[in-house]
């Protein structure tokens, strides 16, 4: 039993260590991506700083607007990073040509996903904290009344369902060797549009508001804003946690199940071999 657990732990750890080694070796890209993300986050939050001048109104609470946009930027950066890390795991392996070796190893997909998820959460958290710290240093924001513990909890619970969605999206590069990786961007674009990253979902057309309720990012953002901007959302924090837990419970096993079905299909049709 202990030996079995040790084996499973080693297998999951293999993916964590490999990914951190890749980050280390591709450090130049990491620096570029970090600089881009910081510039992107700053450019969005400066919209809040400039709202008064843009509209000509003097009674706009710019600190609130900056914090609102900053939360959206950071949460999206975090969730998108997790989604990318999970959904692109197959695309990476195809690109490097190692996919057959990984799929031939006696590793349960659950262990692979677990390792990939742990890496994605740690990596995304580090990335987001750095971006948040740099952007916050540009503005004098007051988080004295913020509930940071609840905000972290909501973020972590929300990330589980995003892992599930990422696993489902990772099927695309498995099934479509040439176009699959690009197709995952469409999935990401959908969540960016409907989840209220930079605006309340109430401004969306009604049909998009319905779709927004199926996005875990919607609940994460509402929950984060309720925790970090007290008084802005008239709901208990638990009302955001339950939908996220439910989505996580559905999406994670569903993602792994669908991935296994897709893997079997690729073995039937010979699509693993393609490297294009």
């Amino acid at each position: 039993m202990i030996k079995g657990l040790q084996l499973e732990f080693r297998q999951s750890y293999a993916f964590i260590a490999r990914n951190f080694n890749l980050v280390k070796r591709y450090w130049g890209w990491e620096v570029v991506w970090l600089a881009y993300s910081i510039a992107n986050a700053l450019s969005v939050t400066f919209i809040g700083a400039g709202a008064g001048e843009i509209t000509g109104q003097t009674d706009i609470d710019t600190d609130f607007l900056i914090t609102y946009l900053l939360i959206g930027t950071l949460v999206w950066r975090f969730l998108a990073s997790i989604f990318n890390n999970i959904s692109e795991m197959i695309a990476w392996e195809r690109w490097e040509g190692t996919i057959e070796y990984t799929f031939m190893a006696p590793v349960r997909r659950f262990n692979q996903m677990l390792g990939q998820t742990v890496f994605a959460i740690i990596y995304s958290l580090i990335f987001t904290v750095i971006i948040g710290a740099v952007v916050a240093s540009f503005f004098e924001l007051d988080f004295s009344e913020a509930d940071l513990v609840s905000a972290t909890l909501i973020l972590l619970v929300g990330s589980l369902s995003f892992v599930g969605i990422g696993v489902v999206a990772s099927i695309l590069p498995l099934l479509y060797p040439e176009r699959g990786a690009q197709m995952t961007n469409i999935v990401q674009a959908f969540f960016l549009l409907v989840s209220g990253i930079y605006y309340p979902i109430s401004v969306l057309p009604k049909w998009l508001q319905v779709l927004a309720r199926f996005s875990p990012a919607t609940y994460v953002l509402e929950g984060m804003r309720a925790a970090l901007l007290p008084g802005t959302v008239d709901k208990e924090l638990t009302s955001f946690v339950w939908p996220l837990l439910l989505m996580g419970l559905v999406m994670l096993p569903l993602g792994i199940y669908l991935f296994q079905r897709a893997e079997r299909y690729t073995k039937r049709t010979g699509k693993l071999k393609r490297s294009g």
Partner: peptide
């Protein structure tokens, strides 16, 4: 075709491969 993560060293690639098979 020797399929590896080309940016990684032999050590990093081999440890990854060995761990998949449960070798410490």
């Amino acid at each position: 075709d020797a399929a590896f993560f080309k940016k990684l060293s032999p050590k990093e690639n081999l440890l990854y491969g060995a761990r998949l098979y449960g070798v410490s």
